[in-house]
């Protein structure tokens, strides 16, 4: 799992989208592994839905948006890439070392790695949200954050009804959809999707 976000932290947009997709796929697989011994209809359904939503729909949505926006070139992020990367690495280290402070009951977790990994994912997602200027990247950051949370949830989840899980995913989907529209609009209105320019509002 670590590989995915290390990739995310560095390279180009298309790669990122693919990475998110891969992450989604991994996430859905995780569903199976978490409940490995219980192959009931619930788990399988979730697996499929998650897989479809996370690895298929959302990446497609994002890439479609990205295409419609016709990004010309990579913008300078708020912070330069290497720095971001280093901070990301630091965050991962922190998340792995500080996990002892979190009194999580990890008895039935697949591997002890999942919790810190999830935490690291959340943090990196946040990092991307904060450091990247482009709207699409922010969506990706958001997704990574969300994935991290899902991973987290997965390790401990037991009795969310299917309806709820489904609803959560639906929300996510709609959210990304609306964000896509917004990005489209931003591009149309501003001619670019650099969110740093979105700071007109405020108190004088």
């Amino acid at each position: 799992m670590l590989t995915t976000f290390l990739v995310l932290a560095s390279s180009r947009l298309a790669v990122r989208i693919k990475a998110v997709s891969a992450q989604g796929a991994l996430l859905s697989v995780l569903y199976l592994t978490v409940r490995g011994h219980l192959f009931d209809i619930h788990t399988i359904a979730l697996f499929f839905i998650t897989f479809i939503v996370k690895t298929v729909f959302i990446p497609i949505l994002i890439s479609r948006t990205a295409k419609s926006v016709q990004t010309k070139a990579e913008f300078e992020p708020v912070m330069s890439s290497p720095v971001t990367l280093m901070i990301g690495a630091a965050l991962i280290v922190i998340s792995f070392t500080s996990i002892r402070f979190f009194p999580l009951v990890t008895s039935h977790v697949v591997s002890t790695l999942t919790v810190p990994a999830a935490l690291a994912t959340v943090l990196v997602g946040f990092l991307i949200l904060v450091t990247k200027a482009k709207a699409t990247n922010q969506v990706i950051g958001f997704l990574i954050l969300e994935n991290g949370i899902f991973t987290f949830g997965m390790t401990i989840i037991s009795d969310f009804p299917m309806m709820v899980e489904f609803g959560v995913l639906l929300d996510l989907l709609v959210g990304v959809f609306i964000m896509g529209i917004m990005i489209y609009q931003i591009n149309k209105t501003f001619d670019h999707i650099d969110t740093r320019t979105l700071s007109v509002l405020g108190d004088e």
């Binding site: 450091t131 969110t195 108190d203």
Partner: peptide, 27 residues
């Protein structure tokens, strides 16, 4: 008030800082 910025990243950082602060406080 002068210290307030209005970029979205700044907003997010504030949230994050609050979160971390509270966690440190708690821990």
């Amino acid at each position: 008030r002068i210290r307030r910025k209005s970029s979205i990243q700044y907003y997010l950082i504030l949230i994050f800082i609050t979160l971390i602060t509270l966690f440190i406080w708690e821990a």
